[in-house]
Design a protein around this nucleic acid. Structure first.
Lengths: 338, 338
DNA sequence: CCATCAATTGCACAGCCTTGCAACAAAACT
DNA sequence: AGTTTTGTTGCAAGGCTGTGCAATTGATGG
C-alpha cells in the first residue's frame, strides 16, 4: 500500500514462453543465448525464430544473479558538464560498451556524502568494477567493495594507498615542462592560476611547477580564485594582473581556468597573448583549439586512460600492478612564444 | 571453457548470512530493507548491526527480478562531449538519482546500429524507462519496449508517432523570434548556419526561421557545412562571408556553430560583432556567456525538461498526454544590436 | 481468566536464468 | 555388428530476494 507500490505492468516475456513456442526445453533457449554452449543449428534456429516473434530479450538481472557479475561498470563522476569530464565519460562509455560492458553513471556532484551514496549503488547492483573519476570515496567503503569481489579503479587520485587500481597522468613532468617552456620564452615573473578544489591532480601540478621554479631561483605566485572553471580563471586574472609587477608567464592548472584567464586579460587589461603574457593550460579540451584561443597546453591521454581501464577489466588476476602513470604530451599552439 | 569464463571471485554476502548472524529469519532481513514492511524495532536493530558488520548490501538485481522493475533508467545519447549534451546528462543523472533511480548511459555515437544495440541493452536490463536524447530508434524496437511494459521518452524528436512520451522544446517560436530580433536590429540580408546532422530540432529551427523571413519578404541563405559543432560553424562563415553580398544577420541553429562562426568572422574576415554582423545562437551553453563571445541566444530549459521526465516517471497511468512542449527563453547578450 | 485484536515472524513459493549431470541419439570406428 | 566417440537435450538445483499466508506472541478489553 506504500506509495512506491506499482503494478508490475505487463510481465515481460521469459525464456519459458519462448521454449514453449519453439517446442524445446528452457535449457535450449538459455544455451542459444550463451556463447559457447552446445546447441544444434536446428534448435537454435527454432529458438531464435520464436524469440524474435515474442520479442524476447535475455534478462541480464537474472543472468547477473548467477554469474555474480552484472556486466555493469559504475562511473563515479562529478561536474560532468565540464568539457574534460564530459569527454572522459564519452570515451569511457564508448570503449566499455565495445568490450561488452555497460556503464552506470553516478553523479557525485555536491556533498561528499554523495560519493558514498554512489558507491553504495555500485554495491547494490553488483557492478563488475567501479571507476572513480571525481571525489574521494571513504576508505571503508572501498574496502567493502573489494571484499565483495569488486574492483575499484581510481583515476588521477593516488590518495588511497593500497588495494584499488590506480591510473594517473604524469602531472609532475608536465608541470616542470611548463615551467621550462615559460622560462625559455623569457618569462621571469611567473604565476600559477589554480582552483580551490584541491584535487590530487591540481595540487600535484601546483607543487611541481613551484618546485621547478624554485630550483631556478624564481618566485611563483599561486592564485586560487574559486572552484575549477572559467570564472575562477577570470577572477584569477583580475587578482594577479592588477598588481604593479604583473607576471609574464602563467601556468593554469586547467584549460578552463586558462581560457577564463585569457579572456579577462585581453578584455579587461588589454594585454596581448603571447606578446605581453604567455599562458599554458592543461587538459587540451576542444575549446583550447578554438581560433580565438589557440592555447598551448598538455593533452590528457583520455584514450590511453580508458584503454588502461579496459585492460584492467580484462585481466583475470587481481595482481596489484601498482599505479599506472601515463605520459602527457605538450600541444604547442600560440599562447607561448617559441 | 570459453574465454568469457571468469571465476566468481568471492561470493558477496547475502541476506542469508546476515540472518544467520543476527539470529533471525531471512524474511526479517528482507523486511528490514523494504520500506513499509512490518518489523519490530528490536529485530530491525539486530539486522542492521549484522548487516553493517558483514558489509551487506541488498542485491538490486534479485530485487529487480521480482518487482519487474530494476530502478534503472537508460539514457541513449550521442556526442556526449558537446557542452549541451554533457549538461543534459549531468542534470538528468542528478535529478533521477534524487528520486531514487539510477542512470545507465548508452552511447549511441556512430552508426545508427548503435542506437539499436543500446535499446537492446535497455531491454536486457529491464530498465524502468528509456530516455532517447540522440538518434532515431527503429519503431519496431520501441514497440517491443512498450510491449514489455517499459516506457520510452523521446527528447526533442517528434518523429515517432504514437506510443512513447515526447518532451520537446518550442523550436518554432524561438526561431521566429530570432528572425524578428535580427529584423529589428536592421538586418536585411539573413543567413542560417546549420549542420548536416538533420536532427528534428535543427530542421525545425531552420524551417521556422526561413518561413518567418519569407513572410516578411526576405530571402534567407541556409548553409550546412558539416556535422554540428564548432568547425562547421567556422566553415559556414568561410562560405557565407566570402560572398560579395554577405549577410548582416545570422541565426545559428546551435551555440557551438555560432561560436565557430563568430571566431572565423572576427579572425579571418575582420568583422565586428554586432556592429557589422548580428549573431544569434541556440542552447545557451556555458561558453556562450564567456567574455569573448557574449552570445545572444535561446536557453534550453534543461531543468524543466528533466523535471518533465521525472514527472512522467512518477506518474502511474500510462495515459499518453501527448507531446509536452516547453517554451524557450531568449538570453540577451551582446551579439545583436538592440 | 478468557476472548479479541494487532503486530510480528517464519515458511515456502515465485521470479528468471545458467549449468552439471545423466540420458540419449547418431555417427564413426574396429 | 558391436563399441566408442561426439554432440544434444532435458531435468533439476542453485543463485538472491520479496511477499502471501498462517502461526505465534503479546497486549488489550470485558
Amino acid at each position: 500500500m506504500a506509495k512506491s507500490k506499482r503494478k508490475p505492468k505487463k510481465a515481460s516475456v521469459s525464456a519459458n514462453r519462448v521454449a514453449e513456442l519453439a517446442g524445446v526445453s528452457r535449457s535450449a533457449v538459455s544455451r542459444t543465448f550463451t556463447d559457447g554452449a552446445s546447441v544444434s543449428a536446428e534448435t537454435r534456429a527454432k529458438v531464435l525464430a520464436a524469440a524474435e516473434r515474442l520479442g524476447y530479450h535475455v534478462n541480464h538481472l537474472a543472468r547477473g544473479l548467477i554469474h555474480h557479475r552484472s556486466g555493469i561498470i559504475c562511473l563515479i563522476v562529478a561536474e560532468m558538464q565540464t568539457p574534460y569530464q564530459a569527454a572522459f565519460v564519452d570515451m569511457a562509455t564508448r570503449r566499455l560498451q565495445a568490450i561488452g560492458k555497460v556503464v552506470m553513471v553516478l553523479n557525485a556532484t555536491g556533498q561528499p556524502a554523495n560519493v558514498e551514496a554512489a558507491l553504495r549503488q555500485t554495491l547494490n547492483y553488483r557492478a563488475d568494477a567501479t571507476v572513480v573519476v571525481s571525489g574521494s570515496p571513504p576508505a571503508s567503503l572501498i574496502e567493502t567493495c573489494i571484499e565483495n569481489g569488486q574492483r575499484v579503479i581510481l583515476i588521477n587520485r593516488d590518495d588511497a594507498a593500497a588495494g584499488p587500481h590506480v591510473v594517473m597522468v604524469d602531472n609532475d613532468t608536465a608541470a616542470r615542462e611548463a615551467m621550462l617552456m615559460l622560462r625559455r620564452a623569457g618569462c621571469v615573473r611567473l604565476a600559477v592560476i589554480s582552483s580551490t578544489a584541491g584535487t590530487p591532480s591540481i595540487i600535484a601540478r601546483e607543487r611541481a611547477f613551484a618546485a621547478a621554479a624554485q630550483e631556478q631561483g624564481l618566485e611563483v605566485q599561486i592564485v586560487r580564485a574559486g572552484p575549477t572553471g572559467y570564472a575562477a580563471g577570470a577572477d584569477g586574472a583580475r587578482q594577479v594582473l592588477a598588481l604593479s609587477s604583473r607576471p609574464e608567464g602563467v601556468f593554469c592548472t586547467t584549460d578552463l581556468l586558462a581560457l577564463g584567464f585569457m579572456d579577462a586579460a585581453r578584455q579587461e587589461f588589454c594585454l596581448r597573448v603571447p606578446e605581453d603574457l604567455c599562458v599554458i593550460g592543461f587538459d587540451d579540451i576542444p575549446e583550447a583549439g578554438w581560433l580565438g584561443y589557440n592555447l598551448t597546453t598538455f593533452r590528457q591521454p583520455i584514450e590511453e586512460i580508458v584503454s588502461q581501464i579496459a585492460q584492467i577489466l580484462e585481466t583475470e588476476d587481481e595482481e596489484d600492478t601498482g599505479p599506472r602513470c601515463l605520459p602527457v604530451q605538450v600541444v604547442w599552439r600560440r599562447t607561448v612564444r617559441p
